[in-house]
Design a binder for these strands. Structure first.
Length: 425
RNA sequence: GGAGGAGUGGCAGAGCGGUUGAAUGCAUCGGUCUUGAAAACCGACGUACUCGAAAGGGUACCGGGGGUUCGAAUCCCUCCUCCUCCGCCA
């Protein structure tokens, strides 16, 4: 959620930011509604507090009167309190309603993009932050996409997954499974070397948790939900890991907080079908190593750059052709202020595959999380960031395709100690 | 799943209907003393909303929600969590 104080004190900045997300006049009206509603809320708050103060004062007097045996005067005061009580009940319910309405409106407002974020409606306006300077790997005529390679080498089986669960749940097997497991360990080790603490969080979360990082209410339809226990399967480790710090007040010396976690990720991907989703391009369950940071507001953009370098180093070490995009206002996630996407070139499919997304949420998540730190006498909201380092399925797809030779699929050198073999043949 | 017990400030732990945002101890921070430190002594020490230029007020919060009462941390209802015992179980 945006901070109310930002909306009140810096309305033009908020409006300008929302325009970058292609908000028109109709949608922007919500900002004035929020301010009006907040004015009402404040007025109700003041009225209510005054009444309660009066009631508290009278109650004290009644106690004193009883002590000295002045029953008659006490009962006069009692009647007075009874009147106040009615008023309190009325104003209380108005106040509660105003607060609820206000929260509901605030939940509809996405984060304000960083000044450097380009305007634009969709991915076509994303800025090429770092292009791939070299030629793409040259594959022979006989090069085939990863789902065919998987068939030939018995690496993963989507039809089997369909039998067991449903479409989009791959069954990895043999060297495919070992490649998957080895890569998870490789990514975790790199993160640990970079100073991240490893976390193994629950992969089902409750509604409060999903709300705090912004999955609810915005992305409710994207998450699997367990009916009986009202729990959600996580779409990313970001959710449970960031929520470690829900309702926490940090000391300034606690920064930076750097966490990493491997989890499977579950996404319903409702409504996406077609050629783009073949093989591992888009699945309902995939593995991902995530990095999460909690930062001092003045350091968060340095942290973001550091995370970008970390992801970049992973791709370099895997010898994959990649490019970095800076997302435009229209393509950026609801909660993000600035997002870099990493794409890897898949030579057999001749297309870019998104493999990582690194974002700074500034105070948008921490406002919902109530994640603050002590800044001298005051408490301030911290900044939260996260990024994939990396998402497995598509990386596997790219490695399989780009490294295919007549002798088999060559495993990148750095992975060999992790997977235990150097070629799939 | 069944039976019983418990949830109070960073921690420990009093309070069980009125002046208690909450005793006391520990921890933490500031000060006095000291060459320095320790000890001792003095002081400070929750969060949120709200009024105010500020100083400083007001209100709410003793697991969550609801109720009784002029007044609730204290009484009642309900939910949640934790502990102990039994059952089940990777």
């Amino acid at each position: 959620m945006l901070e109310l104080s930002l909306i009140r004190e810096n309305k033009s900045l908020v409006v300008e930011g929302l325009r970058k997300r292609n908000w028109g006049a109709e949608e922007l009206a919500i900002i004035d509604q929020i301010i009006t509603l907040d004015d009402q809320r404040k007025k109700l708050q003041t009225d209510l507090d005054a009444l309660l103060a009066e009631r508290n004062k009278l109650s004290k007097e009644i106690g004193d009167l009883f002590k000295v045996g002045k029953q008659a005067e006490a009962s006069v005061a009692k009647d007075k309190v009874a009147t106040i009580k009615d008023e309190v009940t009325a104003i209380e319910s108005l106040h509660k309603q105003a607060e609820e309405d206000l929260t509901n409106l605030l939940l509809k407002v996405p984060n304000i993009p960083h000044p450097s974020v380009p305007a634009g409606e969709d991915e076509k306006s994303n800025e090429l932050h770092k292009p791939w300077p070299n030629p793409f790997p040259k594959l022979g005529e006989e090069a085939i996409p990863h789902w065919e390679l998987a068939n030939n080498f018995n690496l993963f089986d989507l039809e089997l997954g369909t039998k067991i669960t449903g479409p989009g749940f791959p069954v990895f097997r043999g060297k495919g499974a070992r490649l998957e497991r080895g890569m998870i360990n490789f990514f975790l080790d790199r993160a640990i070397e970079a100073g991240y603490e490893e976390i193994m969080p629950p992969i089902l979360v409750n509604g409060d948790t999903a709300m705090a990082t912004g999955q609810l209410p915005d992305k409710e339809a994207q998450m699997y939900h367990t009916e009986k226990d009202q729990l959600y399967l996580i779409p990313t480790a970001e959710v449970p890991v960031t929520n470690i710090y829900r309702n926490v007040i940090l000391n300034e010396g606690d920064f930076p907080i750097k966490l990493t976690a491997y989890t499977p990720c579950f996404r319903r991907e409702a409504g996406s079908y077609g050629a783009d989703v073949r093989g591992l391009n888009r699945v309902h369950q995939f593995d991902k190593v995530e990095i999460v940071r909690i930062e001092h507001p003045e350091k968060s953009y340095d942290a973001l750059e550091e995370m970008v370098s970390h992801v970049e180093a992973l791709l370099v070490s895997l010898d994959l052709p990649y490019r970095i995009l800076k997302l435009c206002g229209g393509d950026m996630g609801f909660t993000s202020a600035l997002t870099y996407d990493f794409e890897v070139y898949s030579a057999a499919q001749k297309r870019w595959l998104e493999v990582s997304s690194v974002s700074n949420f500034e105070t948008y998540q921490s406002n919902r999380l109530k994640l603050r730190f002590k800044d001298g006498k005051h408490t301030r909201l911290a900044h939260t960031l996260n990024g994939s380092a990396l998402a497995l399925a598509r990386i596997v797809a790219a490695i399989l395709e780009n490294n295919q030779t007549v002798e088999g699929i060559i495993i990148p050198e750095i992975l060999r100690p992790y997977v235990g073999f150097s070629v799939i043949e």
